[in-house]
């Protein structure tokens, strides 16, 4: 399967990933080869097969629900501690809306 540079740029855009021109060229070749290999799955007729949505689950549906009781939470200070930019109890990001 051939993947064009245009397709690579489109997917990178979906993934919010900045790629250099060199990376785009390399991705074309690598993704093309890997996706060609993946086409192997089309040898199998899976029209009668259910997709595996759950790996393993042996308990009742509600078993994982906890009681609705409040417990300790992380707290704003700890939650913000790793942010590259924070202030006044918020994460700070570059301007989104122009005045």
């Amino acid at each position: 399967m051939k993947i064009s540079e245009e397709q690579v740029r489109y997917v990178a855009d979906l993934a919010n990933l900045r790629l250099t021109d060199e990376e785009v060229a390399r991705m074309c070749a690598e993704l093309g080869a890997i996706l060609t290999y993946m086409d192997k799955l089309n040898e199998l007729d899976t029209s009668q097969v259910e997709p595996m949505a759950q790996v393993l689950y042996e308990a009742e549906e509600t078993a994982t629900l906890r009681d609705d009781v409040e417990g300790p939470t992380l707290g704003a200070e700890a939650a913000l501690a790793n942010a590259p930019l924070a202030g006044a109890g918020y994460f700070k990001v570059p301007r989104v809306i122009e005045r």
């Binding site: 397709q7 097969v49 997709p51 595996m52």
Partner: peptide, 25 residues
């Protein structure tokens, strides 16, 4: 990139859903 591609509109069934079925097998 691969993961975004196989989940993207038009490819989801051909790749991701197909793989989920093969996983069952």
């Amino acid at each position: 990139m691969l993961g975004t591609y196989v989940l993207s509109a038009g490819y989801y069934e051909a790749y991701y859903l197909k793989a989920q079925k093969v996983r069952t097998l």
